[in-house]
Structures are given as C-alpha cells and as structure tokens.
Write a protein that binds this DNA or RNA. Sequence first.
DNA 1: CAGTATTTTTTCGAGGCTCGAAAAAATAGA
DNA 2: TCTATTTTTTCGAGCCTCGAAAAAATACTG
Lengths: 413, 413
Amino acid sequence: MSVGIRHDDLRRRNRAMVISAVRRAGQPSRTEIAATTGLSHSTISAISSDLIQEGILSESKASEAVSLKRGRPQVGLALNPEAAAVLTVVLSLNFLSVAVIDYAGQVIAEEQRRLDTLTMPRDELIGECTAIVRRRLEDPDLDVQSIARIALAIQGITDSHARAMLWSPITPQTNIAFADILEGEFGIPATMENDCNMMAVALRWRDPDRYRDDFIAILLSHGIGMGLVLKGELFTGTHSSGGEFGHMIHRPGGALCRCGRRGCVEAYAGNYAIWRNARQLSENAEPVADVSDADMRALAARAREADGPEREAYRRAGEALGFGLGSLFALIDPAPVAMVGVSAGAFDLIEPALREAIAQTAGGQHSGSISFDTEPNELPLIREGCAMRALSFVDQEIFAPGIQAKPGKKDVA
Amino acid sequence: MSVGIRHDDLRRRNRAMVISAVRRAGQPSRTEIAATTGLSHSTISAISSDLIQEGILSESKASEAVSLKRGRPQVGLALNPEAAAVLTVVLSLNFLSVAVIDYAGQVIAEEQRRLDTLTMPRDELIGECTAIVRRRLEDPDLDVQSIARIALAIQGITDSHARAMLWSPITPQTNIAFADILEGEFGIPATMENDCNMMAVALRWRDPDRYRDDFIAILLSHGIGMGLVLKGELFTGTHSSGGEFGHMIHRPGGALCRCGRRGCVEAYAGNYAIWRNARQLSENAEPVADVSDADMRALAARAREADGPEREAYRRAGEALGFGLGSLFALIDPAPVAMVGVSAGAFDLIEPALREAIAQTAGGQHSGSISFDTEPNELPLIREGCAMRALSFVDQEIFAPGIQAKPGKKDVA
DNA sequence: CAGTATTTTTTCGAGGCTCGAAAAAATAGA
DNA sequence: TCTATTTTTTCGAGCCTCGAAAAAATACTG
C-alpha cells in the first residue's frame, strides 16, 4: 500500500542520507555532502551540526592533506566510533564466530569456536549461539556501553524478512527463528541473514567501482550459493532469501544433489560433487558430508598436474556453472561475477569449460566481456557484510528514527 | 547516487500519491484517500482541491450508492477523462495495432493492420509504425487536444530504459530506437516496452488481489516470454528487458531453438517446438516461421483425442516449462503464474508433465500450492498494459511534475 | 417537521523544514 | 598586513503538513 510522505519524514530521510554519505565517503566535508546529496549547504550545515551534537559524527580536525587550495579549508566529517557498536555472528559448518564492531567499522573484539553442527541437537545449537554472544556482551574488557544491533549469518536459506533460518546444510534442524531468539534473550534488535547475501554486501563496500548496482557473488564451497545485487538492491525471493543458484536444474534427472533432488548445479559443482567425480564414483553416490579445504586444494593440484578424472571433475563443474549462469543471464542479463570460496582458488580449472558453456547460452554474445574475480576466503567477507548490514541499520533506524521502511512504492504501470 | 529530498518534492510526491490512489480505487472519497495514504485530511483536501481546479480530477456527484450511513455523504473523486489522452502501439508478428485511450482508461479510437513483418525492410517497418500513429493523431473525428504519451510494445527484447527494441523474433532487424524515432517524429514522449512486461502490468490492474506484489506471466506462443513482478515492481535485466525465461537452458546441447542456440526451454515449449515434436521431426529440424493459432488448436484437439505424438509433444513442453519454472523458483521462490497465449488454451495437456517436473525441483515442496491461471488471448492484455503504463506516466511525470525518478536509493547493507 | 447526532470536508493558525543570500570564518598568496 | 578565495554558518522567506475547530450535508428522533 502506497503511503504519503509526512512532513517530519523529510528531516529523518535527509539525516539518514547525510550519515550514509559519511559512511560511504570516509571523511567528506560538508560541501562534498551537499554536492552528492543535492541538498543546500544550509541544510547540510544544520543536519551535521545536530549529528555532531548528538555524538554521531565528529569533525576530523586532522586535515591531513595539506590544503593545496586557498580559502577556508574543508573540515572532514567522520563517524564517531563510540556512537554505537554492533555484533556479528557467523554460523557455518562446524564453526561459529562472533565479532564486536564499533560504529566506524573497526573490529574491537572477537571469538571463534569449533563445534559439530551436523550432529548437534536443536537446543544445543541455539545455546552455543546465545552463549558466545553473551560472553562478548559480558566481557569486562569491552568498554562499550551497549550493542545496538546483532547480525547473524548462516549458510542456508533464511526467510525474506531476515528473521529465521528455514533450512541449512550445516544442521538437520529447520525453521529456527534466530532473530527472535536473540532479541528475546538480549533485548537487542537482530537479523538472520543469508551468508551469500552478506558476501555481496561486503563486496559492494570493498570495491564499489566494480560491484555497484548489478553483480553476482557465487560461493563455490561444499555447496553452491549466490548473493545477487540488482539495481543497487540485494535480491531476495518472495518468501525466502532466494537466489538458490546451486539448485537451478542443470540436467533434469541428473546427478544426486545434497538436497535430495537430481541434476542441480550444485550436484556437479559443489565440493562433494567434484570430489565424487574425481573419484569416479557414480552420480547416484550419496554426497559426502564434508571435504576439507586441504583435500580440495590437493585435488586441484592433481588436476593441474595431469589430465585425469580430477581435471574432468573440474571441467564438469565448470560446465554446470556455465549453463547455470547462462540461464541466470537469460533472466537478468550478464553482470560482473565474483567467485568466492575454496573452489574459487581452482577457478583456473573451472573457467575454460564455464566459458565454453556460457557461449552456448543467452549470455553467449557477451561471453568474452564477462569478467570473473576470485576470492578464496569467504569468511572475512561474510563477517564484513554482516557488520555493514548491522551498521547501516543503526545509521538508518536508530540515528534517523521513524523513517518509513519503504518509500512509497511506485506503481508498476 | 543517493539524493536528498527537497522541500518541493514533498508536495509533488503526495500529489502523485493522490492521483495514483484515485486511479487504483476508482472513485474514492477524500476520507478514503486520507486513510490509504496516511496523510491528514487537511492535506488531502488541499491537494484534491488543486487537482480539481487543474482539471485532473473531478467530483463524481453521482453518489450512486444511496448513502446508508448518516452524516455528510462522501463525495467520490474520479479521473477526468478529458485531462489527457495516451496512445498505445502493439507490434507483433505480422500485426500492428494502435489505440487512443482517454485519461480514465477508456479506448476512444483504434486501428489495426496486417503486415509482413518478417520480410519488411527496416525503413518500411518503422514507416508503418509512424504512419499508423500519424493517422490516429490527425483523425478529425478525434476531439482530443493532444496525446501526452505513447507506449509501444513489441515481442522481443528491449533495453532496460524502455527506449529501443534490441532484438525481436518478428523481424530480422535489430536495434531500432523506436522511442527516439516516435519522439522525434511527433514530439510526444514515448517508451518501447516488452510485450510480456505489459501483460504483467495489465494482470496487476485486472486482478490486484491475485496479482499484487509477486507473480509471473508466461506467454505460451510461437516463442516463450515472461513478465515478472517482484516486490511490486516490474523486473528487468541489467541492460535489457530481461526475463528471457524461454531461453533458460532446459537441456544443454538439446533441441534447436529459434534463437540459434540449443536446449532452450522455448525449443521444447514454443509453438514451433510443439509442432516439430508432434510431427516427429528431428530436434535439429529448423524451426518453422509461424504456426497459425488454428493449427495449434487443431493440434491440441488431436492430442486430447488420442495418445500419439501430439500428446507427447505437449508432454515435453510441460516438462521443459516445469524444469524451467523449477530453476526460476530456485531463484525467486514460487509465485502465482498466469499462462497467456494460444498454448495456454492447451494447458490441460501441459499441466501434468509440468507439475511432475516442478516436483523434482526446488519448487517441489510447494508444487501443490502453485496455482496457474490461463488466458488464451495475449493481445488485449498487452494493449491494456501499455495503456496503464502510459497513463501512469502522465499521472506521475506530467501531473506531478519534477518528481525524482527514483527515491534516494537505500543502501544494500 | 424541527432539532439532534453523525460523518465528511474545509478553514486556519502553528510548527517545522529547506532554500537563497548574506555574513562570518579560515586560509593562501601578494 | 591586506586581499582573494573557499567553506561554513546565520537568518528571514516561503512552503508544506498537521491538528483543532468550524462548516456542510445528511439520517435519525420524537
């Protein structure tokens, strides 16, 4: 339902815009902010003076760059690190990690923990998460008044409102309302995010030139995941986090996937699938629960050495990814791709077959111009994404309160 | 780049919102508008009084429903049909049709014309389009001061800014900047829309209960097209109209598609593919240029009569559509589907295999709850969609001028 | 049939926001 | 030290929305 703009929304939105401009630009002057937002200098002056008084921004006296121009020097505005803090929790296969981040985005505390997620009962899994959060919150060394927000990321499917984990390969448990659980336990607003979406968010902050309005982040790990940004917004499904690239159908009735179905892209390109093919096992062979990163790297090394079943396994992975991307490109058109995760380190083995496959699809006409980046380590990306997600929430919902979640929807027609 | 909200945007946006509320609701009272927009009665009163004075809205004295409540009766606001007029042009295989629509959405003039689009040279094709528009504009019977907007729809791929046709199956020509051509010729703002997108727009207006925020319109015709609405907005690709569902890959290296590639969904489910399979021709056989609707209906009749190659052809079409939808659902989650076009009339033959295929995919868990509607006639839908598209432009860009195209983009993180 | 209750719509003053112009502040060059 | 230049703040004007109260228009009631 479309909703009008009230008078007081105006200030709130423009406040949010100023904060966001500072977060993006680092240390912009008031004049720069006025230029990027299109608001008048008077308005920016008024808003930033408010924000400084409230302790959200601070003037960075250190005019490092010796002013080359004459005239009154610009004074940079920066986020006040002590204005708030957020907490990120990343839950992946057999691994739980948490970090406390200050308002400026610096990690100020962290803790990591190995645990056996696959066999853990429900209560224990939840208990481990709340316990690790509690330890960070109650840490006497941490001189943070309070945590404004918790962002939790998990491998798997979450709901589109970022409240619950619906399904995850790291545990047989389903439908855990992590956001509600953490909020109930600690009284801090929380969200439950999809890991690949957080990768995409992080890439956008890391390299806004390359990853701006439209790009694809694909996780090549035990499973295949995707985070998708279209028209500058994170793409989600109608009910869930969506974007389950790994479960698009590559070959109807084909190889057995970890999800129990057949012919998914993941059943050819996931670590377990590459492993299965490298060992020349049947396509019907039950997927193994886990292949260590070291084993995968060894596999890639063998594939590079000689033209054997290992190389063929990577070729098939590339083919599946290529046809999958081709179908995806038929829907969204080609866009820059970032390959993330341990098998991104073997992208040299994957790329030829991948490009050959794409060339046979709707993406084909641009197949040469599609560029792939690789980043073998997904965990730092996921954590960064969570941090930015949580901080942006603080920027917009806490420091520019009352703003409507969605600007009045425009009509389709 | 995010941009601040200026003070005068406020009025403009709220004006647009009031107009849009009236277009959607038919004849809402000021009180109803205040309720749906969340704005105060005073504001609605001021804005609607402006709009009436400007001749955009009118009070519909005819308080038809004899007021059952006591108190001052509500007075409905309606769009003034004479406030503006728009023109729609629909270009499909061998067929060109144009209509003039008043501001309230009623058709006030139309013209249709058969032509041989497949063999026509570029200039002639463009010439036919401008000529038919010119005839409507210069029609002395038409007592319309001026046309405020032209919306042109074509089967095929358009660019994401709705300016040009990039590729179309109805002509060998490519990259025709129809929007610029029409604007140059007549000095009237114009857009070049994808036909399936217009179907989706029309469905949303026809049945907003079923087709609201997330749904899929699939054209089952000579080719396979799709219009997709996600989160209340029309989905487009990063460069083109996108959503080329028909060219997702069903079987790598499979049947020959009209697009020259292999294994596309369309190569199994397009009319020419059903025709090819029904005749038991090779999958490599060159697609025929056109199959008449009558021939397709006869084919469906034979398939219903006996279990022969015709029935098998529809089964294969269903299978391809099902696996395609399965892959689509992996990305966007299941959503209501409208099947449009001549082969939607044979959906009884398609549905069983389609559902069986979906059940084997990520959409499987909800396969029972996915509902399909059918609408065998795409042309009226496309025209209606164009009309609503053009009228919405007038609502927002002309009668609420200066509004920024996009509200300041929210950050991904 | 006049008076009262009820609901819708308009009017009016208050408060808040952004803007442009002008003033103030802060620096580099002359 | 003075001047030119650039950034930032100040201040009044002009809009816009809002709430409260008034006005308008009808149904009920005795």
